[in-house]
Design a protein around this nucleic acid. Structure first.
Length: 458
RNA sequence: GUGGUUGUAGCUCAGUUGGUUAGAGCGCCUGAUUGUGGUUCAGGAGGUCGUCGGUUCGAGACCGAUCUUCCACCCCA
């Protein structure tokens, strides 16, 4: 090797052990998605630029990976644009495709394109990588997996209730105790902005409010002033900052505060309904918490907003999020289709489970039985034995060459194989094979004609 | 995108004010042990010190650029 190879910033290789752990999470997520009636779809890793651009705000556009056109693309650019050296005007002329930034927008595109084939309400799930040209940090990558479940064509708040249950079911089976599902409603945020007279600064207001638990009341107020929100408006919003207590108590405060806002009152009612349902059904490992400061950046949410926080002992950003969007397909020309969905952050959940030691030990075993190789004749017999074991559903393998027994044992040890089979000349002549239990060191004889006898002992 | 931080063997890290041949632990390979792993003992391999350039008689160390890591913003899974 002339020079050491490398991979791009924010990307990762996954070893067999890491893939096993990732698959463990994926299989549980998938199982519960299907249990709740979701069907899988997949979409291309790249879309036409116009499908993605403008859907995530200005910041989002900057983070979208653009794909250079094929062929002699630069000669097709007019001289004025070319010599302007302006990226913003040049980029659209030399890139027509872009890597997907999330799974929700491609899904909306999918729904619109296939609206005549889809049976509504449509519940789909999707587990695929997405790409963002972000600066990497812990738990932040430029290529990462999202696991999304969305329902479109169903307005009922029961969907929100089910999605909360789904979160709880997945985290429970992963063994992750103490997650907090935070819930809020865009209508409440709008109502607050309306009541305090800052509806034209809704986004700035919510983005600042979202930082409350991170930077504190004073800093949030300072940011609001900087964004042009009046002091009198902020003063009216002050009750929000110190809002503590149970979900019911918070709802009462909000109800009073938003009594003059029709939309705000609607939002309060929606949250109340969802909370009541969930309370009736109960959650196993997660707790549901109303959090008025929860804003989430994505602008397309119109109703409920969710975010899942890892257990407080782990320092990690949100491990999931979602919400209701009433008009996502509208941007692609299909009006009046309401959607609601949630997303699991696979890579972050992985880091949390790793930190808490919650991956099952059984994932370390990638092979149940290794049969040692003692030579040509013995190997042939061993191959037959291995085939029989495989037919029982065991993960069995024959060491490929008649290397030193010591070396073969060492290999078995490294691979954490629980059983090793010895089938040498002696055993072959006696029609037997030896099974060594690698944890206890015990060895047992079995007959070659009846490998099932060994299988029954497992 | 802004500001900072990091990079020495496969891994975790030492390396003094710039000065001979860059070290340790773990791991790896070989042997003790030609049919028994995890323990032990002996020996061995492996580094153009992230990369490129500069300062200097001399650079792992100083300077610049670049890539990478992590962190705080921005934003977000």
């Amino acid at each position: 090797m002339a020079q050491k190879p490398s991979i791009p910033k924010g990307t990762r290789d996954f070893s067999p052990a890491e893939v096993a752990k990732r698959n463990h999470i994926i299989s549980i997520v998938k199982k519960h998605f299907e249990r709740y009636g979701f069907q899988p779809i997949e979409t291309p890793s790249f879309e036409n630029s116009e499908t993605l651009l403008g859907k995530y705000g200005e910041e989002g556009d900057r983070l979208i990976f653009k794909i250079l056109n094929s062929g002699d693309f630069i000669s097709k650019v007019d001289d004025v644009t070319y010599s302007s050296k302006n990226s913003n005007s040049l980029t659209p002329k030399i890139t027509e495709k872009a890597l997907r930034y999330d799974l929700t927008v491609p899904f909306a595109r999918y729904v619109v394109m296939h609206q005549n084939e889809i049976d509504f309400p449509f519940k789909r799930y999707q587990i695929q990588p997405v790409w963002r040209a972000d600066r990497p940090q812990k738990g932040r990558f430029r290529e990462f997996y999202q696991c999304d479940a969305d329902v479109v064509g169903a307005n009922s708040l029961l969907q929100e209730v089910e999605l909360i249950q789904l979160y709880d079911a997945v985290f429970t089976e992963l063994g992750l105790e103490g997650t907090t599902i935070k819930i809020n409603n865009r209508k409440i945020l709008y109502g607050i902005a309306e009541v305090i007279g800052a509806q034209n600064r809704l986004v700035d207001f919510t983005v600042a409010l979202d930082k409350l638990d991170k930077i504190g009341e004073q800093a949030v107020k300072a940011e609001m002033i900087k964004k042009g929100i009046s002091e009198s408006a902020i003063a009216k919003a002050t009750p929000l900052f110190g809002m503590v207590g149970t979900n019911e108590e918070k709802l009462e405060i909000l109800k009073g505060l938003l009594s003059e806002s029709e939309l705000g009152t609607e939002g309060v009612e929606e949250v109340k309904t969802i909370l009541t349902y969930v309370e009736g059904l109960g959650l196993t490992s997660a707790s549901l918490q109303l959090d008025v400061t929860l804003a989430r950046g994505l602008n397309y949410y119109t109703g409920a907003i969710f975010e899942v926080a890892a257990p407080a002992t782990v320092k990690m950003g949100s491990i999931g999020g979602g919400g209701r969007y009433d008009d996502l397909t509208g941007i692609f020309g299909l009006k009046d289709v309401s959607g609601v969905g949630i997303s699991f952050g696979l890579d972050r959940i992985y880091l949390v489970l790793e930190e808490l030691g919650l991956f099952p030990e059984s994932l370390e075993t990638s092979l149940d039985i290794l049969c040692l190789n003692f030579g040509e004749k013995e190997g042939a017999a061993a191959l037959k034995l291995v085939s029989a074991l495989r037919s029982f559903g065991l993960r069995a393998d024959l060491y490929p060459s008649a290397a030193k027994v010591q070396k073969q044992f060492k290999y078995a040890d490294k691979r954490k194989v629980p059983y090793v089979i010895l089938l040498g000349e002696k055993e072959l002549n006696a029609g037997q094979f030896i099974v060594k239990d690698m944890t206890t060191g015990n060895q047992e004889y079995y007959t070659l004609n009846n490998p099932e006898e060994f299988f029954q002992t497992l």
